[in-house]
Amino acid sequence: MHTWQMQEAKARMSEVVKRAQTQPQDITLHGKSVAVVISRETFNRLSQAQDSLVDFMRRSPLYGADDIVFERDPSLTREVAF
């Protein structure tokens, strides 16, 4: 990943965007990374709607198994102060 200082990135925005088509471009301010420029294709891939937790759990090999027993520790989870 190529790193650009903010001022340089502003002055050469066209080049930053062109390079982002092949790999992410890191933008820094005062030596700290503050932003990453990525291609639209990469953004779309990363932001696709993910399955819900319910869908994930339904794909579990344990889905529908009624004979699973979860043992619980009956002890208190914290000390009670009087």
Results as ranks from 00 to 15, higher is better:
S14I: 07
F56S: 03
F70A: 08
Y63W: 07
R45T: 07
L62W: 04
R45D: 09
A20T: 08
M57K: 04
A11I: 02
R78Y: 00
I38G: 02
Q7L: 13
F43N: 07
E15D: 12
F56V: 10
Q21P: 02
M13A: 11
P24D: 07
T22F: 06
V17E: 09
A35K: 12
W4F: 13
E8R: 07
F56W: 00
E8F: 02
H30G: 05
L46V: 08
Q25E: 13
H30K: 09
E71L: 04
Y63R: 01
V69A: 10
V80W: 00
L29H: 07
S60C: 12
V17D: 01
L29T: 05
M1L: 04
E8K: 11
D26S: 06
T3A: 11
Q48K: 15
L53G: 10
Q48I: 11
D66L: 09
V69Q: 15
D55N: 01
Y63M: 07
A81I: 14
I38E: 04
R45F: 03
T3Q: 14
A81K: 15
F82N: 14
D66Q: 09
T77C: 04
E15W: 02
R58C: 06
Q7V: 14
W4I: 08
Q21H: 10
G31S: 05
P74W: 00
M13K: 03
E79R: 11
D51A: 12
N44P: 00
V37K: 15
Q25W: 05
V17F: 01
A9P: 08
S33Y: 01
D26N: 04
M6F: 15
R12E: 13
D26M: 07
R78D: 13
I27V: 13
S33A: 06
P24N: 09
M57I: 10
T77Q: 12
T77W: 00
F82S: 14
F43G: 02
E79A: 10
V16W: 03
Q48C: 10
M6G: 10
D66Y: 03
R45Q: 14
H2E: 13
A20V: 01
V16C: 08
T77V: 13
R59Y: 02
F70W: 00
P24F: 13
K10H: 01
S75L: 07
V36C: 10
A9M: 05
E41Q: 13
A49D: 14
Q21W: 00
F82E: 15
L46D: 05
A35L: 09
M6W: 12
S14M: 05
V36Y: 07
A35R: 12
S33Q: 13
R58S: 09
Y63L: 03
V69T: 14
V54Q: 12
Q5K: 10
R12V: 03
S33G: 11
Q48N: 15
I38Q: 09
S14L: 06
R78F: 02
E15K: 11
P61G: 02
A35M: 12
S39C: 11
V36M: 14
A49L: 10
I68K: 00
D55I: 00
P24C: 01
P74G: 05
K18M: 07
H30I: 04
